Structure formats: structure tokens, C-alpha cells
Deep mutational scan, measured.
Amino acid sequence: DIIVVALYDYEAIHHEDLSFQKGDQMVVLEESGEWWKARSLATRKEGYIPSNYVARVDS
């Protein structure tokens, strides 16, 4: 799995977006363009995230 960590807070604009806080970790489910589908490890919610707001966690 690709794990990313939030670099900034993000408040969902559309209902399919995923809100998150700086430091939150998410599993990337699908990478396509600038918006990635991800699942929050904390809340288990899924939605689209702006890929420029996150960084990959080296395992």
C-alpha cells in the first residue's frame, strides 16, 4: 500500500472529497492526475485528496 502523510489541513469542497488535518496518514487507493482517492487511517473514510497536499511515507 502507498501511505501518505498530510502536509497541510484540507477542508473538503465537494461531497466526494476527504477532509484531513496536517499529520494525518492515508492509504492511496487510486492515483489519477492531481486528485487521488484515499482512505484515512484514523477515520477509515474514503474520498478524493489533492495530491500536492500530501507526501509519501517511506516504509
Results as ranks from 00 to 15, higher is better:
Val5Ser: 04
Gln25Trp: 15
Arg56Met: 10
Ile3Pro: 03
Gln21Asn: 11
Val57Arg: 07
Ser40Pro: 03
Trp36Gly: 02
Glu31Cys: 15
Trp36Thr: 07
Glu34His: 15
Lys45Tyr: 07
Val57Gln: 08
Ile2Met: 12
His15Glu: 15
Ala6Glu: 00
Asp24His: 06
Val28Arg: 01
Gly47Glu: 01
Lys45Ser: 08
Trp35Ala: 05
Glu16Gly: 15
Val5Gly: 01
Asp24Ala: 05
Asp1Leu: 15
Glu46Ile: 12
Asp58Pro: 12
Leu29Asn: 03
Glu30Ala: 09
Leu41Trp: 04
Lys22Ser: 07
Lys37Ser: 05
Asp58Trp: 08
Trp35Arg: 14
Gln21Cys: 14
Tyr48Ala: 04
Lys22Gly: 03
Ser51Gly: 08
Leu18Met: 10
Gly23Ala: 03
Asp1Tyr: 14
Glu11Tyr: 11
Ser19Gly: 08
Arg39Ser: 04
Gly33Gln: 05
Lys22Pro: 03
Pro50Tyr: 08
Ser40Val: 08
Thr43Gln: 05
Leu29Phe: 08
Ala12Ser: 09
Leu7Val: 06
Glu31Gly: 13
Asp9His: 07
Arg39Tyr: 11
Asp24Ser: 05
Glu34Tyr: 15
Lys22Thr: 09
Glu46Gln: 09
Arg39Trp: 09
Gly23Pro: 00
Pro50Asn: 10
Leu29Ile: 10
Ala38Phe: 01
Val5Met: 08
Ala42Asp: 09
Asp17Asn: 11
Lys45Glu: 12
Ile49Leu: 04
Asp58Gly: 12
Glu30His: 10
Ala38Arg: 00
Leu41Pro: 04
Val5Glu: 07
Ser19Asn: 06
Asn52Pro: 05
Gln21Arg: 15
Arg44Thr: 10
Gly33Thr: 06
Leu7Ala: 03
Lys45Asp: 09
Leu7Tyr: 03
Ala6Asn: 00
Asp17Glu: 15
Lys22Leu: 06
Met26Leu: 13
Val57Ser: 08
Arg56Phe: 12
His14Phe: 09
Arg56Cys: 08
Glu30Arg: 08
Lys45Pro: 00
Ile2Leu: 11
Tyr48Met: 13
Val4Arg: 02
Tyr10Ala: 01
Ile13Pro: 07
Gly47Phe: 02
Met26Thr: 00
Ser59Tyr: 12
His14Cys: 14
Asp1Val: 14
Ser19Pro: 07
Ile49Phe: 05
Leu18Val: 03
Ile3Met: 08
Leu29Trp: 06
Trp35Gly: 04
Leu18Glu: 00
Asp24Met: 05
Gln21Gly: 07
Val27Met: 10
Ser40Glu: 06
Tyr53Met: 12
Tyr8Ala: 09
Asp58Asn: 13
Gly47Pro: 00
Tyr48His: 05
Phe20Cys: 03
Gly33Met: 04
Gln25Ser: 08
Tyr10Val: 02
Leu41Asn: 05
Val28Phe: 03
Ile49Cys: 02
